[in-house]
Amino acid sequence: MNVQMEEALEQFIRYVQLEKNFSLHTVREYQSDLENFFTFLQSEGIADIAEVDYIHARLYVTKLYDEQKARTSISRKISSIRSFFRFLNREQHIDDAPFRSLYHPKKEERLPSFFYEEELAQLFEKNQGDEPKQIRNIALLELLYATGMRVSECVGLELSDVDFHYSIIRVMGKGRKERIIPFGQFAHDALTRYLYVRSTLMKTNEHQKVFVNLRGGELTARGVRYILSEMIEHASMHTKIYPHMLRHTFATHLLNNGADMRTVQELLGHANLSSTQIYTHVTKEALRKTYMNSHPRA
């Protein structure tokens, strides 16, 4: 990467960190997307950002398709580069038209995976126990299902974020937006039980994160994925699990049981209702499957 590109990238990263207050994860994605784009520009013999035009933008997107990148990944990269050029246009009057003219690829129509209520009941039942590890795992599972939190929000929870009197939890979501989510009696009881044994797991560590690993450190997103996979295996369930699947399950079960779309949108922390509407397709598909499996003349 030449000096001009490096300086422009540093300025942009400072902008999204300090002025836009984006999360560390989002900042890293911006940096990675732009570094990949700069590598492409250098392979095309372009040393000056101001030389980039529409044909280079098209060539880059074509390259991403040739590499068989997912459409969601391509769409994110276009957004990252478009934001970068918009910033340069404002700061240095560099033309931002090349990527402004590009269309985002149409998203693949994939319905989110979720657990049926019977499957989730089995997962809870088979993982009960009196060991601190089992108590923590059940509390983690209960809270993810009770609130529909993202895994990043869950591992970021601190003890002061949980209000047991009102059974609500304060969550810091995307874009540093705070929201309040209620949780039910099952999650309340599981969390209360877990906090009694948390000190045992903490050992000599000192931090305020709710969930801890077996060494007493802060639980990571990777650790959550490992715990859930372990729980699935222990329940002898032949399915894959990932934290977002519990978020999908939370939304699907609420809609199946009569919750309105706006409420679910607010609980999930979606900026746009369109992001929540995909769950109406999931519930329709669930109804169809139940009908096909149950009706004598289906």
Rank of each mutant, 00 (worst) to 15 (best):
Y116K: 13
E285F: 03
Q128G: 00
I180C: 07
I169D: 08
T62V: 12
V224R: 03
E117Q: 13
M261S: 07
T204E: 15
Y242M: 07
A187C: 04
Q134S: 14
A47H: 13
R170T: 13
F250L: 04
K133S: 12
T147Y: 04
I46K: 12
L120C: 02
E178K: 04
A121I: 06
R225N: 13
P98Y: 03
Y166E: 08
A259I: 06
Q134H: 09
I46M: 09
T263D: 07
E44S: 10
E7F: 11
G184Q: 02
H165S: 11
E125A: 12
I55W: 04
N257V: 07
R297W: 00
V282S: 13
L102T: 02
E266N: 15
A139I: 06
V197A: 06
F85Q: 04
H207F: 06
T239K: 15
S160H: 13
R100H: 09
I138N: 00
A190S: 14
A271G: 05
L144E: 05
R198V: 01
L267V: 08
L41Q: 02
F22V: 12
M1C: 03
L273F: 07
A271P: 01
Q128P: 02
N36Q: 15
R86S: 13
L34E: 06
V3Q: 15
L228N: 05
G173P: 04
A235R: 03
L195A: 05
S113W: 08
N21F: 03
T26R: 10
L143G: 01
